[in-house]
Design a protein around this nucleic acid. Sequence first.
RNA 1: GCAUCCGUAGCUCAAUUGGAUAGAGCGUUUGACUUCGGAUCAAAAUGUUGCAGGUUCAAGUCCUGCCGGAUGCACCA
Length: 611
Amino acid sequence: MLPHQQIESALQAAVRAVLPDADAAAVLVRPCDPKFGDYQSNALMALAKARKLNPRQLATDVLARLDLAAVCEKVEIAGAGFLNFRLSSCLLTQTLAAAARGEHLFFDQAAQPKTVVIDFSSPNVAKPMHVGHIRSTGIGDALQRTLRLLGHRVISDNHIGDWGTQFGYILVVWKDFQKNAPAALQRHLESDPIGTMGAFYKYGRVAGQINDYEDLEGSDWVQSTPEVQDQLARAELVKLQAGDPENTAIWKEMIRLSQVQFEAIYARLGVKFDFALGESFYNPWLGEVVADLLTRGIARESEGAVGVFSDGSVPPKEDVFLVNRDGEWIPDPALVRKSDGGFNYMATDLATLDYRLKTWKPDEIVYVVDDRQAGHFKKLFLTFARWQPDAAKQVKLVHVGFGKIMGDDGKPFKTRSGDTVKLGDLLAEAEERAFKIVSEKSSELPEAQRKEIARVIGLGAVKYADLLPNRQSDYIFSWDKMLALLGNTAPYLQYAYARIKSIFRKAEAQSAIRNPQSAIALAAPEELALAKHLLNFGLTLEAVAEELRPNYLCNYLFELAVHFSRFFENCPVLKADDAPTRASRLALCDLTARVLKQGLDTLGIEVVEQM
RNA sequence: GCAUCCGUAGCUCAAUUGGAUAGAGCGUUUGACUUCGGAUCAAAAUGUUGCAGGUUCAAGUCCUGCCGGAUGCACCA
């Protein structure tokens, strides 16, 4: 058990002894400002308040029952009733020595592993993946890696948008090309399948957005009015939904072409999914879901559509099924079936939820989706709770929302020409920019190696910049900032790692290879600060898993790199005064490198030995 | 109009969900043995946390009202 856990469990035991009826599990310990101690707890003040006790007296009583002689040098009461713990230096070195022997890396497997379904990335068929997808993909991947590292059972599922109204528009233009200009269709699909399908969609909705207008000279589509075009698109969609063989074949081809793109991007990003069950997978169940909702009286018909309405269980202000229009509360239902008989994504999401619960029996389902859909998820979760109350009690449903990526001008990030930035282009540019910098700084390295370093640094910079801000806020995208190579960036962390590796290359040359059994001796303040920070790795991972916020880990790793840099500056390793000090410092370097590597890996970021 | 989220240093962002004197980075100023990798480190300056009240041992965080911004408001996902 790691020191902070020993402190926590001893403290909880003492609280139980003093206040048998208190919820001792809520008494937590966390790292604190070094001037107070290594760890602190403020939970006693809350307990005292709830019981109208004197907080300092309660702290004194708890302290009297607290046996931490083996763990802490000092435990004291401070301020209004804080408990401050100073770690025993002996235990600190023992913990580091155990880590050096490979017994742990400052984190434990979860005592009670959970089963968690994570739904993230969710690109759309026939559309290019754009900058926005880096957020869901990066955050989702970091979360699945964190939970897996802590021993939880994770099922990652890419809920691909392979069904929906957009296919009507694409189908109608696709078929129009097929009929009037088959050679042009072939040419477009071969040169840029995703761009072509995207253009078909846009063209279907906004005429004139495709360059090869002349390819369709004389077609029915082009000569039709917008209203007629909409009707044509809807007709194609209905045929697809009814299983029309021709439309189904084209639709399958669209999925195939899109998957080539998705797989290329995921391979590049190093992201893996356990499943990729797209929306269409759930089609067979949609009718049953809606019928069941109707039978149970949860949904009803309205204006030809089927929707779930307010059940009046909460005041109008808190009711997501109501909306205020000009001072009047009117229904804002969750529609599950459109008036044309088609199903929408609320029906699909309900069927998906049902399927996931029955198939994987998760404790938790996490949706990593844009904050703009917060309202949708509220309705989804509430509707599900009404539909399957017992099942809903068994699972925690969480919408992990995130903000937008903005440009320098404070508006959504676009290219100079005003288009959305494609994810592939963004990654390519990151690697190119990194290559220029690497070539400048390390011109002595062979080109192939510089390319590989640039790949790792460029991708790392993009991912880290996206994970660092609190996910709920919008953030401003800046090439210069993310590739700055100093400050709180991925390259700075990768640099710290590369410096440590350089020490070991030299150490090996000096045949001063580290001995995993060597004793750890911490004397300098920089050594102590680094060592204590290493101990907090597990704490941080748990916080990420609990709050579903990878930025905690980013900040932890940045601080680790800062602590290491200070240590490196002040404490000679290879040139240490004596052999034991050198061995101890080598061990500290090695542990830092291992935590940096593991931590970055948990964020989906690679490291290089040299850069 | 109604709801949700947000407003923190010149700029970009944190703040472990109510904890101790609100912290980083960039930028600015100054300094560090031709360096175990200077892509580094150290030091300095910058704040009425949008405004005004309230709750309590303690508020950037919770409540109320304003001001400003983003997003969403039945048949797109």
